[in-house]
């Protein structure tokens, strides 16, 4: 076997290995950096650990799901258009959140939080129609 043939074989082997690794790892890397935007209700805030939960309707099937994740220190938080902090966010607030979700580690990190209150008061305690939540299938 000539020398250049050996080099071709080595190059092919390298291409196969690199492609295999890329196929295995790239989706996770892409997933980790793909920014998604969701809108829902803030259901939990822990200022100390900077964790929060958001209840949203899944765009896939319309079912309610809770997403929990980290709100980093440098994540901009807007409350009715003005700059706010995580300590000002209360459960029951309506929020539009952009963030990343690492499929492998299931870690969610917020990139921006936009709180929209209909009035100046925090949302907790605000009443909404309960009849809308009744399952039609209940006997």
């Amino acid at each position: 076997m000539r020398k250049y043939q050996i080099w071709i074989l080595v190059a092919l082997a390298v291409i196969v290995v690199v492609t295999t690794i890329a196929v295995a790892v790239l989706p996770d890397i892409i997933s980790a950096y793909k920014v998604r935007s969701v809108e829902g209700t803030i259901t939990f805030v822990d200022v100390a650990s900077r964790h929060a939960s958001l209840e949203v309707r899944s765009p896939k099937d319309g079912h309610l799901v809770e997403i929990s994740g980290v709100v980093p220190e440098d994540c901009p938080i807007l409350i009715n258009g003005r700059k706010g902090s995580l300590a000002e966010v209360v459960t029951g607030d309506r929020a539009a959140v952009s963030g990343t979700w690492n499929k492998k580690t299931r870690e969610v990190r917020a990139i921006s939080v936009d709180i929209r209150r209909t009035s100046g008061t925090p949302a907790r305690g605000a009443a909404e129609s309960a009849s809308e939540t009744r399952p039609a299938g209940a006997s």
Binding site: R124, A127, P135
Partner: peptide, 13 residues
């Protein structure tokens, strides 16, 4: 309880 219900239902009802 039915914990599948929305936050507002759990809070108010």
């Amino acid at each position: 309880l039915d914990s599948n219900q929305p936050y507002e239902h759990l809070r108010d009802v």
